[in-house]
Amino acid sequence: MGSSIDFSHYLKQAGPDLLHLDLAIEGISCAGCMAKIERSLSEIPQVTSARVNLTDRRLALEWKAGVVDPSLFVDRLAELGYKAYPFEIAGAEAVEVERSRALLRRLGVAAFAAMNVMMLSVPVWSGNGSDMLPEQRDFFHWLSALIVLPAAAYSAQPFFSSAYAALRARGVNMDVPISVGIALALGMSLFETASHADHAYFDAAIMLIAFLLAGRYLDQNMRRRTRAFAGNLAALKAETATKYVNEDEIRTVPVAAIRPGDIVLLRPGERSAVDGNVISGRSEIDQSLITGETLPHIAVAGSAIYAGTLVRSGALRVRVSAASEGTLLSEIQRLLENAVQSRSRYLRLAERTSRLYAPVVHVTALLTMIGWLVAGATVHDSIITAIAVLIITCPCALGLAIPAVQTVASGALFSSGVLLNTGDAIERLAEVDYVLFDKTGTLTLPELDVANAASVSPEIFEMAGRLALSSRHPVAAAVARAARAKAPLSGIEEEPGQGVFGEVDGVKVRLGRPSWCGAEEAARAIMASDPEASVVALRHGDTCQVFAVRQRLRPDATNIIAALGRMGLAVEVISGDREPAVRAAARALGITQWRAEVTPVDKIARIDELSRQGRKVLMVGDGLNDAPALAAAHASISPVTATHVSQAVADAVFLGDQLAPVATAVRISRTALRLMRQNLWLAVFYNVLAVPVAIAGLVTPLIAAAAMSGSSLLVMLNALRARQIRRHV
């Protein structure tokens, strides 16, 4: 039986005889690394192009098909000190990338046009009414029109199409006043130029488009980046499955290449990456990631296995089923769909603002026109003044107010170990006042740990650790990890289902079941005091030691729970595990509110109950059984070790062993929301100053341009303050 990594799933045909591969790379931090990698890979003669993307930490490779094996590249990168994992750009991410490219192109066109038109406008502003001849002014206006009209027709398309879509759905969004403003400003300017008037607003219109596109691009870029990080995360986990092809061949393949109906092998210590049914084999399985329960079950032929299940003792052969077939999964799926639907009713801050904003602006413009008509102005002058009102109120600062803060805040979140899944996560995280924690894998670390390590002598512990390296059993693996063992002992054999044994310096040693090592007494004593623990015994000659292995609370959990309390958040534990385990964890953390043996349906019911009381719930959980609750809660966070389903519905994912990112996420989001509100008020304040001037008919293109760039700059600078939050955490 041979086993090799299969790259074929990731290879793409880039041209005749050209192959393309994308790799996610761990450890790139600077431009120097980038040059080093590109140079080193280009030295391989068949490679035609090697490009590193520093922001996404990715490498795109192209080479002539035939001789070179892709694993050569991975090896070469390993020599340089970088771990590389093949990955596939998800469909959703490819769409985001394309959108963000298109926006950047439009932004470029608008910005260049704006610069050139500004250059033409400055002489008009400074020359108007003094030494400029009317013919020259007209000439400059026509030139501006020549640049602006095609540029605007191209770069303002996103606004026009979005406004059109909103109007067709009988709604109003921010793009409706924007589109009306731009169209009217251009139309009026053209008319005024043709009739040799003093003022034309081409410069204001194109500058407006450029600023708004900048806001749009920031927003889109944030979305693209979160997608890219999520994609890298999936690749860095390097999830592979051992596919059983036939008697003589098994193959290690990426999970994405596994199809329903395939047979995969699960060996002891392995976590299943697929759903399916056991065909043959018998093993203890740990389903804590799925149900929250920490006690192991027995799987035999016919048992259902879900992705995330840890195989503990024996090997299993599993036939992969489509994701929705299992009873538990279809139940979860149904709950999820309901929950996601109810969440989509949430209105973002930007949407709420624009609902209020569009009618106010349009009514103001209309009233201005009517007012001037009543006051006896000509129809032409009244319309011009009304349009000036529309131009000056166009939500330039408003369009930047929220995306600018979001971009800065998501950067701050990322550097403290929190990745955002959704764009409005910041707003929702900032509003929460009640936190529901799952226990298993969320408050506790997902990996097992030795609980009585302090009472074991260092020599015995070290020996147990080195012995444990020869076993694949998860409990043994926990002992090896806790003892920080590096060097396995030689001549160790495994007794299936019992443990490992061998000889050290002429003394017989065994590590395994207490009954097999003659340590039942000690084991029973530990089980009595700590029913949650799994036990493993070491016999060394006549001495005997029993290790209690169990899930441990995250190291900073107590502090963070206290910190959340100080931030005014109520905390509750809600777990699918049995009562004693949940009670013990809650007591250790000083949490008075807890519920045990909760089903996914009950978790949602609890969230509904809390929201009826007016609480905004933050759900923190990792298991498959938490997924519906994660989707139903006002906001949700998952650890990076969570199941795929949970991670996909959570608003944010946090990295590392610490619980601190949860508190940090709430804190940064609160500051960010405050800055967003401040920015909105700044924009309103600007309008309060500018609109009376516009209504009075005193706005010149110069004032419009200065007001727009001034307010945009103010909002951007205010957004940058979100970077300072990090220091206070």
Binding site: R51, G108, F112, N116, M119, L120, Q136, L143
Partner: peptide
């Protein structure tokens, strides 16, 4: 003022050149 006849097209050409360079770099995957 006749100098404008040269300067204006020159300025616009330079602007357009910048734009073309920007789009070119975008297309080449930077």
């Amino acid at each position: 003022m006749e100098v404008l006849v040269f300067l204006v097209p020159l300025a616009i050409t330079l602007g357009a050149l910048g734009l073309v360079a920007f789009l070119w770099s975008l297309r080449n995957g930077q």
